[in-house]
Structure formats: C-alpha cells, structure tokens
Design a protein around this nucleic acid. Structure first.
Length: 194
DNA sequence: GACCAGATTGTCT
DNA sequence: GACAATCTGGTCA
C-alpha cells in the first residue's frame, strides 16, 4: 500500500460514468484518530443530473445536495432512512450536480477497526453495501463537503487493473431504475448483491 | 436460501 | 406530513 497515488481533481473532472468505471479497483483511505482503514472499491453507481430522476440534484440545488454542485472531488455524505448514511464522490464540473455513489468495498487494511465499528467479524459483511462501508470506514457528516485530495478521506490507486466490469441497473431507487448506471467488479464476492 | 416487515429522522412539499 | 441511493432480523422452506 506504500506506493498508493492519490487522485487529483482532474480525475474527477471527467464524464461521471467514466469516473464510476475507473473507480473500480481503486482504494478508499480514511485516516482517523482511531487508526487508518483502507478498502478496495468493487461497486459503484453513477448519478447524473440531467434525465436522471433518481439523482438528488435532478430538481436543482437544495440545502442537502449543495455539495454535489461543488468542485469535482468533493465528498457528499447524506443521511437516508433516518439511520444510515451514504458516501458519494462529486464528479464532472462544478455547478453540474453529478456524483458517483460508492456501494461496496473489499476490506484491505484496518480490518480489526472495521470489525469493531460494525460489530461484525465476517469480512463480507463489513463493507458490502453503501451504508455498511460508511460505518466500517468511520465516515460521518463531518466529512460532507470536504475534499478527496486534501482531507482525511482520499481515493488512490496502485498498479494496473486486470478485471472485468459488469454493468447493470441501479438498486434501491424507484425512479430511473431502468438506467444501466451500476458497475461492479466481475467475480468479486464483496459486492452488495449479485 | 428467499422473502418480508420494521426501524427512524432529516429533508422537501 | 410523506418519503427516502438501506440494513437487520424474523419467518418459512
């Protein structure tokens, strides 16, 4: 993990679908006082502003989705169903309102800390869902609006990629559910759903 | 294994 | 006042 390279703003400034695909196989790193946790991203979803009723930004900027309209590489964390939270990486350009939802991670480092936070020991249960990985990584609303290249939460990569990418429809939404905007790493057993 | 109901609260209409 | 980019734990097979 020592030769991880952190993605710079230019990486997030591209087409949202392209960023969602390229994020697969990269590493999410969170440095906290409790310790460092690292997970490999194995599942993502793209949320496009235009023609995507499921996107929070589809109906313009509100108090909640304001970070989505920030510069690319901004962290967008929001609470859902009262008790859970989800983590997004803002993409495209400032003012557009698009982002990539991180849906699942494969635990890489700081696993005992993840197990402590989750109250579970099974590796596959630690990060196999958007709300689970937020808990395992120790992500909170404090990170909302921070930067993925200067803050404590970062995304980096190492080496090349050698795996297939599956494209399917998204999960857990009522509108725009037919759009093929979910991507996951082929053959990985840490995704949220097969 | 599959299916289903309940939890619980910020945000928007 | 209704809903939401979910998870968990229960039941039934």
């Amino acid at each position: 993990m020592s030769k991880l390279r952190i993605y710079q703003p230019e990486f997030y400034s591209k087409n949202t679908v392209e960023v969602a695909r390229e994020l697969l196989g990269t590493f999410l790193i969170h440095e906290t006082e409790e310790g460092v946790t690292v997970g490999k991203i194995v599942e993502t979803e793209a949320y496009l502003c235009s023609k995507d009723p499921a996107c929070h930004a589809a109906n313009g900027m509100t108090n909640r989705n304001e970070p989505m309209f920030g510069p690319p590489g901004t962290v967008y964390v929001y609470q859902i169903y009262g008790i859970y939270m989800c983590f997004n990486a803002v993409t495209n350009r400032e003012g557009v309102g698009e982002a990539v939802l991180i849906r699942a991670l494969e635990p890489v480092d700081g696993i005992t800390l993840m197990q402590k936070r989750r109250g579970k020991t099974t590796l596959k249960d630690l990060c196999s869902g958007p709300a689970k990985l937020v808990i395992a990584m120790g992500i909170t609303m404090d990170l909302n609006g921070t930067s993925l290249y200067t803050g404590p939460l970062k995304i980096g990569y190492e080496g090349g990629k050698n795996f297939g990418i599956h494209t399917t429809t998204r999960i857990g939404i009522s509108e725009g559910a037919e759009l093929p905007l979910r991507f996951y790493m082929e053959g990985n057993s840490y995704i949220s759903k097969k």
